[in-house]
């Protein structure tokens, strides 16, 4: 067989310990966890209508209640296709320490730090959709700007924006009151219902991809491009298209993957798309 199965030569007791250690070390992919979060969020939201009340019930804790509806929308999107774990909102909203019930915090400073993180997202994220609108006339995706350093180990947002006069990036680290800082966000944000609609179409495509139903996935993605030419989630749609096409045609999947990596070089989804592309290469090399 291969060199790697030499582990079978160990003493039985050692081999058993070795195998069990591998199983214990296994952790679920972040993307899978986010999909589960998406699933329970949809249950909590009933028919999927995003209201301020339900957003609050989901545990979104932005500084202004209005922002919570928008953020819950963004949070819902996290499960889409496996790359959005890197959004700061994900850090704030989905990766809280599991031992701490999110609504049971008593430490004011921690709570404030969290609110500040959320507010920072609120400040930057919606400007993405502004960029999306600016680029809207062409349905072709626009290349991304280089992501700004965000002051920590957090990876860049999916659609980072250059600073604009009314939204200086330095504001992130100033002590501007949170409510004020999140205001521009609210003005420019794609509305939560619109995001929810985008999400629903893409979730359909995602499910079809998971089921190996390429044609169904592509028809959902075509619907997405037609309905949301400058959609907030167009990078996610493009990544799903790579996957859907690659199901039946690895060669074309590879070509699309290359195009994706050219168009969205800084997208957090690029890791996944690169891995898909590798998989397609392996498949097309095999007779």
């Amino acid at each position: 067989m291969t060199e790697t199965d030499r582990f079978l030569d160990q003493e039985p007791a050692e081999l058993e310990a070795f195998l069990l250690a591998h199983a214990r070390r296994e952790v679920a992919p972040a993307a899978a966890r986010e999909r589960a979060l998406l699933g329970v969020a949809q249950v909590a939201l009933g028919a999927g209508a995003l209201t301020v009340a339900s957003a609050a019930a989901l545990g979104a804790r932005p500084s202004a209640l209005k922002a919570s509806a928008w953020l819950a929308g963004k949070w819902l999107l996290l499960g889409l296709s496996g790359g959005l774990v890197t959004v700061t909102a994900a850090q704030a909203l989905t990766h809280g320490p599991p031992s701490e019930p999110p609504l049971a915090r008593s430490s004011v400073s921690t709570a404030k730090a969290r609110s500040a993180r959320v507010a920072r997202v609120a400040l930057r994220e919606p400007s993405d959709s502004e960029a999306a609108r600016a680029a809207a006339p062409a349905s072709a995706p626009t290349p991304q700007a280089t992501p700004p350093a965000n002051g920590g180990t957090l990876p860049p947002l999916p659609l980072p924006l250059p600073p604009t006069p009314q939204q200086p990036r330095a504001a992130e680290r100033t002590n501007t009151p949170e409510s004020e800082r999140s205001l521009p966000a609210l003005r420019n944000a794609a509305s939560a219902p619109e995001l929810a609609r985008e999400l629903l179409v893409l979730e359909r495509a995602r499910n079809a991809v998971s089921a190996g139903a390429a044609a169904r996935a592509l028809s959902a993605l075509d619907e997405y491009s037609a309905e949301f030419p400058g959609g907030t989630l167009r990078a996610e749609a493009a990544a799903l298209r790579v996957e859907a096409v690659g199901l039946g045609d690895p060669e074309r999947g590879r070509a699309l993957a290359a195009a994706f990596l050219r168009d969205y070089p800084t997208s957090p989804l690029s890791t996944r798309v690169r891995a898909l592309s590798e998989g397609y290469r392996a498949r097309s090399n095999k007779p």
């Binding site: 804790r61 932005p62 500084s63 202004a64 209640l65 919570s68 019930p101 609504l103 049971a104 915090r105 008593s106 430490s107 004011v108 709570a111 404030k112 969290r114 609110s115 959320v118 002590n175 009151p177 949170e178 409510s179 004020e180």
Partner: peptide, 15 residues
């Protein structure tokens, strides 16, 4: 201001 928005958003609720 910040305290005010804090009160709106995240308050220390019992578990």
């Amino acid at each position: 201001m910040a305290d005010c928005s804090f009160a709106l958003g995240e308050s220390a609720e019992p578990a």
